[in-house]
C-alpha cells in the first residue's frame, strides 16, 4: 500500500512533558484513518504537527519523494493538507464568503470563485445557508461548512479533529456522509474521534495513541473492511 506522506521520529515536549514520541507514521493514500486515544493523549497535538500548524521538537517528513525536516516540509504540507478544528472556526462573514476564503490564494477570478462556491454549496447541500452569517450557524452546520471550505481547495489530506463531537445523530450522519463522499473523491482522511462506532464504517485503518506513541493499528484488509483482530505493532 503506497503512503501519501510519512512522518518519522515525531517528538514534542509541551511545558517540559513529552507528549508525543512516534517512530513512524505512514498516512496511506485515498484512505480514511481513524485515530483514537484518551483525552489528553495527544491527538490534537499530532494532527496539528501533521498539518504544519504546530512545530514539533523533532520530525522528518517524507513527501513526494523528498525527505525533509518538518520545518522545511512545512510549505509543502500546508499546501496539500488541511486541518479542521474540533469546533471549526468560521470567519465573521457569510457562509459563501467563508467557503471562498482559500480560493483567494489560487488567484481565482471573482466569477470563477463564485461559481466554485455555488458548486461546493450544492455538493454539501448547504445552498440554503449561502447568505447566512456564519457565526450564527449551529455546530453541525459549522462543521459541514468547514468541510466544504476545505474541500474546495482540493487538499490531498484532510485532518479532522473529532468532527462529530457534540452533535446530534442527524448532524453526525450528515457529516459522515460528506466525509464518505470526500473519500470516494480520492481525498485521504485522518480523523480523531472517541466515537468509533460512528466512524468505523468509513475508516480503513485505526490507530490508537497511548503514552505518546501509536500502539495498535487495525489494518484494512484488501476488501477495505476493517479487521479488528488484525492488530499490528507500529514499531518497525
Amino acid at each position: 500500500m503506497s503512503s501519501l506522506i510519512d512522518y518519522k521520529n515525531i517528538s514534542i515536549f509541551l511545558s517540559g512533558h513529552s507528549v508525543l514520541n512516534i517512530d513512524h507514521l505512514a498516512v496511506p493514500a485515498h484512505q480514511c484513518t481513524l485515530l483514537t486515544g484518551k483525552n489528553g493523549s495527544g491527538k490534537t497535538t499530532l494532527l496539528k504537527i501533521m498539518s504544519g500548524l504546530l512545530k514539533p521538537n523533532s520530525c522528518t517528513v517524507h513527501y513526494q519523494g523528498l525527505d525533509l525536516p518538518w520545518k522545511q516540509a512545512k510549505p509543502y504540507i500546508q499546501k496539500d493538507i488541511i486541518y479542521l478544528h474540533q469546533q471549526p472556526y468560521l470567519f465573521d462573514a457569510s457562509v459563501a464568503d467563508n467557503i471562498a476564503y482559500g480560493l483567494y490564494r489560487a488567484g481565482e477570478s471573482k466569477s470563477a470563485a463564485h461559481h466554485k462556491v455555488m458548486q461546493a454549496l450544492d455538493w454539501a447541500n448547504l445552498t440554503h445557508l449561502a447568505h447566512r452569517s456564519a457565526k450564527q450557524l449551529s455546530g453541525g452546520e459549522k462543521q459541514r461548512v468547514a468541510v466544504t471550505r476545505a474541500r474546495i481547495l482540493s487538499p490531498r489530506l484532510l485532518l479532522l479533529d473529532e468532527p462529530t463531537a457534540s452533535m446530534d445523530s442527524d448532524a453526525k450522519q450528515q457529516t459522515c456522509l460528506l466525509l464518505q463522499r470526500l473519500k470516494s473523491e480520492g481525498v485521504s482522511i485522518m480523523l480523531s474521534s472517541h466515537e468509533t462506532h460512528i466512524i468505523e464504517h468509513i475508516a480503513d485503518r485505526h490507530l490508537h495513541l497511548e503514552n505518546g506513541s501509536l500502539k495498535h493499528i487495525k489494518q484494512a484488509t484488501t476488501s477495505g473492511k476493517v479487521t479488528s483482530l488484525n492488530t499490528i505493532k507500529n514499531t518497525p
Binding site: K48, S51, G52, L53, Q78, K79, I81, I82, Y83, H85, Q87, P88, Y89, F91, Y101, G102, Y104, R105, A106, R149, A150, L153
Partner: peptide, 15 residues
Amino acid sequence: ADRRAWETAITLGAA
C-alpha cells in the same frame, strides 16, 4: 481573538 482564527487562515493557505 480566537487562536483558531489564525490557524484556520494559515491552514486554508493564507500567507
